[in-house]
C-alpha cells in the first residue's frame, strides 16, 4: 500500500536548495524528502521559518546587488 505524507513542495534554484540542505543539516527540522536538484518536500509548519532563515543568509551574502548603481535620487 502506498504511503501519503502531508508536506509542502518547494521549487527552488539549485543554489538556494544547497542553502536549505545546509540549514537542515543542523537538526533535520525542515526536510521531509529530498526529491531532485530543484525540488524538496518540507514540513508544513516550517515554511515561514525557513523563508526567514534563507532571507537572512542571502542578505549576509549578497551585500550589494544594485545594477543601477546608486539609486539615482538626484535626477530631479
Amino acid at each position: 500500500m502506498p504511503r501519503a505524507i502531508r508536506g509542502v513542495l518547494v521549487k527552488v534554484d539549485p543554489s538556494i536548495k544547497a542553502i536549505i540542505v545546509n540549514i537542515d543539516a543542523e537538526n533535520h527540522a525542515f526536510i521531509i524528502e529530498d526529491l531532485d536538484e530543484d525540488h524538496l518536500v518540507i514540513k508544513e509548519n516550517m515554511v515561514s521559518v525557513l523563508k526567514g532563515r534563507i532571507d537572512e543568509i542571502l542578505a549576509a551574502v549578497l551585500t550589494v546587488s544594485n545594477p543601477n548603481g546608486a539609486e539615482s535620487d538626484s535626477d530631479y
Binding site: M1, P2, V10, K11, V12
Partner: peptide, 23 residues
C-alpha cells in the same frame, strides 16, 4: 524573481508503491 526565490505548494507526497504498474 530576484526577491521571490522559492515557490511553495502545500499537498501530499505519495511513495512506497508496490510495483511500477501501481505507481
Amino acid at each position: 524573481l530576484e526577491t521571490e526565490r522559492m515557490e511553495t505548494i502545500p499537498g501530499f507526497l505519495f511513495k512506497d508503491f508496490q510495483d511500477f504498474k501501481e505507481y
